[in-house]
Design a protein around this nucleic acid. Sequence first.
DNA 1: ATCGATGCAAACCTTTTGCATGCAG
DNA 2: CTGCATGCAAAAGGTTTGCATCGAT
Lengths: 146, 146
Amino acid sequence: MNDDLLERYKDILSSKNYKLTSQRNSILQVLIENKNRHFSADELYKEVAKVNPDVGLATIYRNLEIFCRLGITHRLDFDNKYKYYELSVEGNHHHHLICVKCGNIIEFNDQVLEDFENEIEDFYDFKIIDHRIKFYGICEECRKEK
Amino acid sequence: MNDDLLERYKDILSSKNYKLTSQRNSILQVLIENKNRHFSADELYKEVAKVNPDVGLATIYRNLEIFCRLGITHRLDFDNKYKYYELSVEGNHHHHLICVKCGNIIEFNDQVLEDFENEIEDFYDFKIIDHRIKFYGICEECRKEK
DNA sequence: ATCGATGCAAACCTTTTGCATGCAG
DNA sequence: CTGCATGCAAAAGGTTTGCATCGAT
């Protein structure tokens, strides 16, 4: 299953004439092994280094940019100074609950929102192709503390 | 109405022992006059300069930080390198439709989502206090073009 | 053999911070 | 007066870029 994914991404790259370098392979590998995790560029850099130390940070950035453009990954903005990236795996669409106390981020899936989206599309004449939702609040742990 | 707002924000500042400087006044004034617009720090800096040239960029940053902490403003993250700020005016809660072609950002109001929020609160045991939603898509204009 | 991909380090640019001065309370 | 607020310029720090080299095709 993971191998299938890897092959699919490699196909996408080849079909767009991007070379299959060992660096790209390692980056994809790490992303796939952590399907439901999001990485800052630096976090990914360090994680990739464990598998393949010959990958520079600039290469991470350059490839994340390409991967996002090809739809392999997408970028997330939380409210800190980093940008985060995660694999765009279908059936893994999820959003984030951000605790304003401890900063912890909980992921959750949603199948709802379809009706809501349709309403908006009609009203604003805007064809929606994706959405990101962030809920801010206080997590279970932090509510216990006080 | 705008004056009421200004007074309210000044009260908040005073009550927290923040001084009412001419810089803070000018920044609030510009934000209030542009209630439903979001600014990057630099955009706000330039806009404030038209009214009061004696406001440095560092002051903009320092005060936006304070305003956000006091709930006067909140910060938005789109997918570029800037952070954006806008006034938190009740009854003006809105979200953003981001066109992936032209980058234009349309604001929209929502009263819905309450049910959805409650569901999430129960399931994840997470007390939600705010949310941000971004929809990506293609706007009317851009759909016409092709 | 070619030309895109990479590593390294420097450049970039937004945001933050140190410090002397200014001004609200 | 006192101490927070500000301006300026420098520093920080995440991201991008230039350039020589490497390596996939």
